[in-house]
Design a protein around this nucleic acid. Structure first.
Length: 211
DNA sequence: GGCCAGGTGTAAA
DNA sequence: TTTACACATGGC
């Protein structure tokens, strides 16, 4: 039993996800910041507001008042700190020369992590879905599911969890994109709070499934 | 009405 | 080095 096996089960169950749901790499970044500990439905409202205001653009976000940006993204919650985080990223983004400039940095991941408001999951989401760099995105769902399956120690750090996937899977952008998307899709339908249930496609391989 | 959501930064132990 | 806590809206 390994990560690839789980992937196959999830793919057979849910099919291709085609993530990230965004029209541009920059929109991926905005979504990645806005979705921090936030329901995606709320993020969609905020992004719709930005689009309606013609503000889904780095320069536009920097040009407007921060209070205006706060209002536009308010539905996504934590709107004061997220407005600041978005603008900090926008300054970095334009300063580096957008996606291409960031990709050419010696260590894009460390550079992103140095930005206030960009932690490991947000950084890796940006690397994978906006910059097409093959890093596995670890989120709360990933941990929960693999701990329940007995494939991950409950004390495993972000880095340890990520290494686990990197060593068990080929370094493939499309695979990583789909895998993370499938985990989120799966988590939304099953096992959010309660242990694995009878209709869960992973039940048959979960040691605790029937307890 | 309470719980949760595709985390992160900060401060105290 | 780990553990709490704040940050905030909207759906179920």
């Amino acid at each position: 039993m390994n990560a690839l096996h789980i992937y196959k089960i999830l793919f057979d169950t849910y099919g291709e996800q085609g993530w990230w749901p965004a029209d541009s790499p920059f929109e991926v970044v905005v979504g990645a910041i806005l979705t921090q500990n936030t329901n995606w439905q709320n993020v969609e409202k905020a992004i719709a507001n930005l689009k309606a205001a013609d503000a889904l653009d780095a320069q536009a976000m920097l040009d407007m008042d921060e209070t205006r940006l706060r209002e536009l993204i308010r539905p996504s919650g934590f709107y004061k700190q997220k407005a600041e985080r978005l603008r900090l990223f926008c300054t970095f983004y334009l300063g580096q020369g957008r996606e291409q400039g960031i990709k050419k940095l010696p260590d894009p991941r460390s550079t992103l992590l140095a930005l206030k408001g960009i932690g490991p999951e947000t950084a890796d989401s940006i690397l994978l879905y906006a910059l097409e760099i093959p890093v596995f995105v670890v989120d709360a769902y990933t941990r929960r599911i693999f701990i329940r399956l007995g494939l991950l120690d409950s004390a495993a750090s972000y880095a340890e969890t990520q290494t686990c996937f990197h060593t068990q899977l080929d370094r493939n952008v499309l695979l990583y994109k789909e895998y993370h998307a499938l985990i989120v899709q799966h988590a939304k339908q099953h096992c959010r709070v309660k242990p694995l249930c009878a209709s869960c496609p992973l039940t048959s391989i979960c040691p605790a499934a029937l307890t």
